[in-house]
């Protein structure tokens, strides 16, 4: 494969899987035929054209697809959103840990008390890197490994808790973190993991955490004139990130019901802990409502397209 073809294929990989299955070989061939002698990079004009066409192919109205496919894509979006939000929070937590490290060391905090939380943070971040690799290379085993690792971290966290711990409570701690990995493991063999479908919500989630952190920092400047990095800060920032996510998904959901399903799925995972720990099915009412609204919207889109 020539360097030009490799670069053209990197661009055509941005198209949805269904589009690639039908058109990719021809698209690559035709793009290569427009080359001039000695050309080793795609012409910027062609690169831009491919990028725009890929975005348009993804934005193709979900009304063209059966609701089952829309639902699956929405779940993939939701799982990626959750994962990216979590990665954002982990990065904040790691930053906070490093920020306090000199102070804690000087204050004589035992090494074990510092090393354990840091090791858990790094392990969890590594699991998410594994998830990204699993999605890009379609390696199912990596996704399973991540799910087990994160479930293990959750269980470990629950067992470290000093109070009485029963199995339900520990499972409630273990399962939500593993949810994006379980979704990935289920979807990789079905080849429904479009790269852009994974990248888009991941960027949205990370951007929201960054926005929430920046806003928080700005607000702290005005309110207290000092920037207090207390342990509660990360929780508050992640809550703010989740709130922004809610608003963003609802706004995007007006055009595309997949974002509503993503939101519903994120809420399910959020509430899974509560459901496992208390067995209260009310935790899922919000999700049921959101998914029903998404279905109604899909029907409306389909009808308006048919007419």
């Amino acid at each position: 494969m020539s360097p030009l073809e490799r670069r053209v294929r990197a661009l055509t990989a941005l198209f949805p899987a269904s589009f690639r299955a039908r058109w990719e070989e021809e698209l690559v061939l035709t793009t290569l035929e427009t080359r001039t002698a000695g050309q080793s990079w795609p012409h910027p004009r062609d690169a831009l054209d491919l990028l725009v066409a890929a975005i348009r192919a993804h934005a193709k109205t979900p009304a063209d697809q059966p609701f089952r496919v829309v639902l699956v894509q929405g779940i993939a979006l939701g799982a990626t959103l959750l994962a990216s939000l979590r990665v954002g929070v982990l990065l904040l937590r790691l930053g906070l840990f490093l920020y306090w490290l000199p102070t804690n060391s000087a204050a004589g905090v035992p090494f074990a008390d510092l090393a354990l939380p840091a090791a858990l943070l790094v392990l969890e971040l590594a699991a998410y890197v594994g998830l990204a690799v699993a999605l890009l290379q379609r390696r199912r085993v990596l996704a399973w490994a991540g799910a087990i690792a994160l479930g293990g971290i959750g269980l470990l966290g629950a067992l470290r808790y000093g109070g009485p711990v029963d199995l339900r409570w520990a499972l409630g701690m273990a399962i939500p973190g593993a949810v994006p990995f379980l979704v990935a493991a289920a979807m990789i063999p079905a080849r429904q993991t479009d790269r852009a479908l994974a990248v888009q919500p991941a960027l949205v989630g990370l951007a929201l955490v960054a926005l929430a952190a920046a806003t928080w920092r700005l607000a702290a400047l005005f309110v207290t004139a000092t920037w207090h990095l207390s342990p509660g800060t990360v929780d508050r920032i992640s809550a703010a990130g989740a709130a922004l996510l809610l608003v963003a998904c609802i706004a995007a959901g007006f055009a595309d019901p997949r974002w509503l399903i993503a939101l519903g799925f994120a809420v399910v995972s959020w509430n899974a802990r509560e459901f496992i720990q208390t067995g209260d099915p009310l935790a899922f009412i919000g999700t049921a409502v959101v998914v029903t609204v998404a279905w109604v919207q899909w029907r409306v889109l389909r009808r308006s397209r048919a007419s």
Partner: peptide, 13 residues
């Protein structure tokens, strides 16, 4: 008018 390859195959689909 120059049609790019992405535009072409988007339209063909």
């Amino acid at each position: 008018i120059r049609i790019g390859p992405g535009t072409l195959y988007g339209a063909l689909e």
